[in-house]
Design a protein around this nucleic acid. Sequence first.
RNA 1: GCGAGAAUAUCUAAGAGGUCAACAGAGGCGGACUCAAGAUCCGUUCCCGUAGGGGUUCGCAGGUUCAACUCCUGCUUCUCGCACCA
Length: 926
Amino acid sequence: MNAFDLGKFEEEAQEQWNHAFESNPSNLEKFYLTVAYPYPSGAMHVGHGRTYIVPDVIARFHRMQGKQVLYPMAFHVTGAPVIGISKRIAKNDPKTIRLYRDLYKVPQNVLDEFTDPLTIVRHFASEYQRVMTACGISIDWRRRFTTVDPTYSRFIEWQWKHLYEAGHVIKGAHPVRYCTVDDNPVGDHDLLEGDKAEVIKFTLIMFHFGDALIPTATLRPETIFGVTNLWVNPAITYVRALVDGNPWIISQEAAEKLALQDHTVEITEKIAGKDLIDTTVNHPLCGTVPVLPADFVDPDMATGLVMSVPAHAPFDYIALRDLQLAGKYTTIKPVPLIKVEGYGDVPAQDAVERAGITHQMDSRMDALTQEIYSAEFSKGKLLEKYGGKPVRVARDDVAALMIETYGSKIMYEFDTRPVVCRCGNKVKVKILHDQWFLKYSDPAWKKQVSDQLGEMALVPSEVRLEFDRTVDWLKDWACTRRVGLGTRFPWDTSQLIEPLSDSTIYMAYYTIAHRIREIDPVFLTPEVFDYIFLGKDSPELPEKKKLDAMRKEFLYWYPYNYRFSAKDLISNHLTFQLFHHVTIFPKNKLPRGMVVFGMGLLNGAKMSSSKGNVFLLEDAIRDFGADTVRMFLMGSAEPWQDFDWRNELVISTKKQIERFFNTVTESKDAEGEPHDIDRWIISRLQSHIVRTTEALINFQTRQALQEAYFGIETDLKWYRRRLPENIDGSRELHTLCSVWVRLLAPFIPFTGEHLWKELAGEGLVSFAPWPVADTKLINTRIELAEELLSRTVEDIESIRKLIQITPKSITISIAPAWKQEIFLLIAKAPERNTVLKEIMKDEAMRKRGREATDAAKQCTTLIHRLPPQVVDSLVREPIDELAVFQDAKAFLEQEFGVPVHVNQAESSEHAKAATALPFKPAIIIE
RNA sequence: GCGAGAAUAUCUAAGAGGUCAACAGAGGCGGACUCAAGAUCCGUUCCCGUAGGGGUUCGCAGGUUCAACUCCUGCUUCUCGCACCA
């Protein structure tokens, strides 16, 4: 009784795998791979499944290749999201409750305790471990830890000590999104609206207005030379405020904002916008200009007052034009200051007129503004009288001059609004002090990382460019936080180390994670870690014996061979970890390679927990079986491509495993004598071994499955077809099954273990030797013969279908020797244009005249159409076609149910026989 | 907007100058086996064809070449990232 029952196989295998993948230093070559550890704030879905199964397949493959493989796992619980989740659960937020209770299926009694953030991550961490185990992921669980373990915190402190000493940790001020109600910085996950908004740095141009200043915010300070007026909204009320002791006129909103940006602000009186209209202001760089009314001025945008440059800003141009059409302010003329190719003296006018825009509310105005902005920035030059510099240079120069000489200030503001906190309050920009940074902008540090990247294997190779770009582009990273879970920042213990900055060298920590637990965290001084990781001895180290054991582990496993992660982490985590590694570890302990994954889709749409568009991994295992899930995920796309989970496709994957199981079960005990066809299938098997191995070395799981599963299955179909009637497979099939089971074991290890036992294999298939191709078993002659035969069978079938007569006999006529000669000459010829001449030099060929040139043409076409390997083999070892067909006569007669004759074309009377070519005999159906 | 990728038949997807009407899988259709269903096997699945052939195809528009799905240029659409967030 041996039925196909994935559930049973899973149970059997789990029993045998208990502790099997715990891995220790040995004499074997090591292979250490890691994957980004999960943040366990929810249940695993099939997308997570792939993230951990890909490395598992690779781990299992290398393990079978006889290496000592380490695949560890831990949990990243640092950060703020679970804090928010726990608060929302405490507040009984229906959306959150629905997600956790209904989608993640958290039992009510557990859910009740989710008001404590640590309970959430603990719960899901153990869920992760359970489901990963159920998937057959071969992890050494002894090394599991979480990033809030005190021991881990000691390790992080050691890491930061080195970063600090290397001069990479600096203190500064930093603008952040800030909620004045919560009194906290606002992360993306805390936003109700505006998660796309960026903080932009504006320059405030200070216009003099009596004894007060009117600041206008701009991104284009160089256009000060073209200012003709200011815009003020007559409908709103502005305020006069003492900003750092000086009187400013700004909007009410602006006053609140400036107070968050390092200014003291004291409102002294209110001023109606309409009272400002028709007054004048002045600035040394543009002289005295009037203040004009404009409804489009938004009090919530920067200072709430705007300077007007009608020559270069379409909005300003059209607003001024509208006023002038009404007969007002007709003396004001746009003042051009930038010359840009493709536009006249007044680019804004050009653009507006070209687009045929007639009023300010036209929806194309934004695009037009952008167009002018880009054109002037990339190609524009200031007029000679303003210095003649390109805009991209002048902009920064003028801004610097303004700040130095003309009292300009910086103001931060969002580029799009509204930006709203979950609490409903409008988010503002606040400058945080005591903010610490990792100085990723440091060119010397960047250089070290680029150099290391240059020596690393990156899979797929296309991501290299993206990595290079990222290193180039990285700016300083704010590395401390005020809220969340994590390790205290050593130089300001009121703050925490930010989550992406405490997860960069933990791959080294895995090597010692199971041993360091034995030491009380209070003894874990930086000196201890210096000894373990850097070999630096110091007096009075505790527990020296244990430390030596850890040192040994580290030296054995490190550096890691490959790090796996999804592609969205390229621009942060994957690059950060290189920065940290190059600072902390010596050259020979630096990362060797990275593999980047694609994303997961569910029925064609992006998988997303918050939208409920997920399929839980555990449900998938229950519905289809772990092996099915694994094989589907590995076979539907290469790791770096996006994959799409579709239940219909998964069902057919299950059938495929069952077919494999049945074939192996039925064939393994075959006892027949081997025939030629057995030599054929064993010969083919060798190339499947080679190609599967190559694919897995290159992380191509899909390619590997194509070879190892479908390649062999297709061969077996032909094999069975070719077996003489009433003859079962031979004992060679046992060999084939043994190889087949092992080739698929990394993909479907549960079925693999079961069948391996059935095959009486030694030990666990998880540790069985990976098949190695035996070149002695490769028989090109037989492979060619079968190729010839199957091609001829296909030809016969297609002819038979076309001619629609009931055949009485089939005759196969073999091409004569002289055609064979021509075929070989052409196949071997390096230059096809001259080969015909060469052939016709031959006396015997010339005698054949036209017949010979025709044959040569046909051979050329045929050679083009045949696969190159076939042509190569034919050149090296021509086959006896007559013998092939005579041997296969019985097979052909069985296939077509009519007598089959084989003859030499030369001895045939039939006109069609003349069409015979090498490897393409003439077929005569009568 | 900027940076990085992608677009192939009903769907998933391979192919990276002649091996290509285009691997493989799924699905559809027809057939064999069967009381029947499932499983399995065989055939077929762009168009035309009573002899293994021909024609039109690989996001769109051009170009290079004896020859392009493959190289170049432009365009369109999609995915990922653009930072304090895991």
